[in-house]
């Protein structure tokens, strides 16, 4: 019996060797900037949402989107961390893990325009880093840009092409004007 006790104890002790030296991993990711590039032929208009000092502190700087009516724009979305020099491009990471991400672009009213996806991940589900934005009649409102992070849960994929699963890594509103 006594030997058994010692054996059990040594097994338990043996299971876990001492923990490695705790290295602080990489720095926290910080999205400071979301950039929308609307391209029509050779004409590209860029609008940005910038919050360089991160959450809180100074209020973010948001450009007002101004588009022409009834035009088919090629829209690309960029996510940057500009608190570092040089700025860190988070868009590449999203591309790498495209099957866990979904960009959702929602105008406050269909009268402003419509967005359609133009890119697909390995599972043939949309990503939303590239798309088409078709402006309609002259109107004003907001354009919501969301980056949904939909990582697998206990090994099971959660991304299903809708915005429902996961949580927001970014969620902002641009003011938009079509005239």
């Amino acid at each position: 019996m006594k030997k058994l006790g010692i054996v059990i104890l040594s097994i338990v002790l043996g299971i876990s060797a001492c923990k490695k030296d705790h290295e602080v991993g990489h720095e926290n990711e910080l999205i400071t900037t979301i950039k929308l590039n609307f391209k029509n032929g050779n004409d590209t208009k860029s609008f940005a949402y910038k919050d360089l000092d991160g959450d809180g502190g100074m209020a973010p700087k948001v450009d007002k989107i101004s588009l022409k009516p009834n035009i088919n724009y090629d829209l690309t979305v960029e996510f940057l961390d500009e608190s570092k020099t040089p700025a860190f491009n988070i868009t590449d990471e999203i591309k790498e893990e495209a099957d866990e991400h979904l960009v959702v672009i929602t105008p406050s009213s269909v009268a402003i325009g419509t967005f359609t996806y133009a890119d697909k991940d390995v599972n043939q589900l949309p990503i939303g880093l590239m798309g088409k934005f078709t402006s309609k009649l002259a109107a004003e409102g907001t354009l919501k840009v969301q980056l949904r992070h939909q990582p697998p849960i206990n090994g099971k994929k959660t991304k299903d092409g809708t915005a429902t699963p996961g949580s927001d890594d970014a969620n902002i509103n641009f003011e938009i004007e079509v005239k």
Binding site: H22, V24, G25, H26, E27, N28, E29, I90, E93, I94, E96, E97, E100, H101, H149, P151, S167, D169
Partner: peptide
């Protein structure tokens, strides 16, 4: 005391908060 609270961030590279 070491505590790290790892969030569901992108990649395997991000550590949410570390307290020592």
């Amino acid at each position: 005391n070491f505590r790290s609270e790892v969030d569901a961030l992108r990649g395997d590279r991000n550590t949410a908060q570390v307290f020592k």
